[in-house]
Each structure stands twice: as C-alpha cells, then as structure tokens.
C-alpha cells in the first residue's frame, strides 16, 4: 500500500483503523497497535492523533510507534476518563477512527551533531519513543544518546522490553529511576531530575527532549539550565484539553499559543513564562 505524506493540518475527517494487538503495559496503561483500512499516513516523532472510539468520543493521543512503519501505528493510553478508559478496554479486531497526525514534531534535525538527551516521566516515554527509535536508526548522526526515565514505582514502568533492549544496546545510555520502591527492586530510587547533574553529556552541545508531568518538566528544565544547557535547546511537550486538533476551536489555548497548532512540542523559552502563570 502506498504511504501518503499529506499535510493533515486542517483535516477533520477521521479514517477507519482496526486494532491488531493490545499490549498491557501497566495496570492502567495499554498500547494498542492499529492497521489502516485505507492508505497509511506518514508521521514524525512527537506528533499526535485524535483517536475516536465510535459512539463515545475522541482524545488526543501521541503516536508511540516507529515512524518508518506508518502501516502499523501504536498509541499508548492511560485510562483517565471516558475515552481513554474505553480505549483501555478494546479488543483486537475492533475498529476505531483516527485523524491526524497533528502538531509540531520533536526537533531531531536540530540535534544532529550534538548529544541527544531524552527525559521521560511515566507515560511520557510514549511520545518520545518514536524519536528514540528514529535516532537509533540513524545513530551516526548524533553524539551521545542518553535516556533518563522516571516512573512512580517499578510496576508503573512502561515499555519494559524496549528499556531492556536499549539497556543492552551500546548506542544509548539508559538510566531508569523510580520515585518509590521496596527492597528487591535493585535499581535507582529518586526523582528523574536527580540524574541530570551527574549523567555524562555535553551541556553546551546537546538537545534535550522532555516529556512527562508538567511539574517534572519544570524541575528538569531548572536542573538543565543549572547544568549549563542553553534554554533554547530544551524542548518540552505540553498537554491541554483538545477538541479540534487543528487550531480552530481554542480549547487548547495557553495564553497566546494553541497547543495543537503551535505545539505540542515547544522550546523552553517559548513556554516557560506561560507555565508560571497560574490562570492559564
């Protein structure tokens, strides 16, 4: 099947997809793989889809699969409300609607020739996973590739297979830490930001991609700035309630920006001031 590389900004029509696999990542997070019923559509790491459970509603969900195989899309979903809970309960064979991909992707090109540092908290590994897969495919384009992965507890770790595989891979330096654990876990315990001052990378020649709870990204940015990373090299991805996904309804507005159209990936100077305003 040909892969369409169509600009989908402005497209509001959802296309049918069939669920091929459901993988339970944790007690409340699943990854669903879907195959298009029409042409696959290319996407870039960091972009998101509006995923439609027929009869229930839509939610913005980042694409967590390999951009090189747009014929097999994955979305990783935490059950928090109507749509995401319904998505967690779907079985292989079910049809869902998807429109997208939307949004500004991770600036992987800007990271070429530099160290690439990825900081992911909780389910935040999902939106950066395509960037990691893509960077490892073109390993020679980057300096060090470092992944700092935080989770609330060992049972909340997502993409364990990937973490194990990447751990064994010399191309990427993986550091996993959890906020709390009992003895037997054996790994690091402490916030992910604690790793920032000590993990080897060149602060003056790196690009950092961070994704996770806003408070984690805020703490991370503080630690990165302290280490000497230029603010414009720190990128975050933000989440706000979305409806249209294409910059027309205003649901995702954060001060002067629409997250769906101008983001969800932003450089730190673009949004740092906005995150400090409580009313936004």
């Amino acid at each position: 099947m040909p892969v369409l590389d169509v600009p989908t900004q402005g497209t509001l029509t959802s296309r049918p997809y069939q669920i091929t696999t459901v993988r339970h990542q944790t007690h409340d997070i699943v990854t669903i793989d879907v195959a298009p019923q029409q042409h696959p559509i290319a996407f870039r790491p960091g972009q998101f889809d509006m995923v439609y459970v027929y009869g229930i509603g839509e939610a913005a969900i980042s694409i967590s699969s390999d951009p090189a195989t747009p014929g097999l899309l994955s979305h990783t979903i935490r059950a928090v409300g109507w749509v995401t809970r319904a998505l967690n309960d779907l079985q292989p064979g079910t049809r869902i609607g998807i429109r997208g991909p939307y949004g500004r992707p991770w600036p992987l090109q800007e990271a070429e020739g530099k160290d690439l540092v990825i900081i992911a908290g909780g389910i935040g590994l999902a939106p950066v996973r395509p960037a990691i897969v893509e960077a490892l495919r073109h390993r020679e384009r980057y300096g060090r590739i470092v992944l700092l992965k935080g989770a609330r507890s060992p049972r909340d770790l997502v993409f364990r297979d990937d973490l194990d595989r990447w751990h064994a891979d010399r191309g990427i330096d993986v550091h996993v830490t959890v906020d709390s654990a009992v003895r037997g876990w054996g790994g690091r315990v402490g916030v992910v930001t604690k790793l920032i001052p000590r993990v080897p990378f060149d602060p003056e020649n790196c690009v950092v991609l961070t994704c996770g709870p806003e408070v984690m990204m805020w703490f991370s940015a503080e630690a990165l700035l302290k280490r000497g990373v230029p603010p414009e090299r720190i990128f975050v991805t933000l989440e706000r309630n979305m409806k249209c996904g294409v910059g027309t309804c205003g649901h995702c507005q954060l001060g002067p920006v629409f997250l769906c159209r101008d983001g969800p990936v932003f450089s730190w100077p673009e949004v740092a001031g906005l995150l400090d305003v409580r009313e936004l």
């Binding site: 928090v80 908290g121 909780g122 906020d179 709390s180 402490g190 916030v191 604690k194 408070v215 984690m216």
Partner: peptide, 16 residues
C-alpha cells in the same frame, strides 16, 4: 528539594 519533587510527583500521580 528532591524529596519535595518526589512528593509532588507522587501526589500528582495519586490525583490522576
């Protein structure tokens, strides 16, 4: 500071 960040993250998760 790390402990506070840990607390904030855990509270955030618990609320979600």
């Amino acid at each position: 500071q790390f402990t506070r960040a840990q607390l904030v993250e855990m509270t955030h998760h618990a609320r979600a």
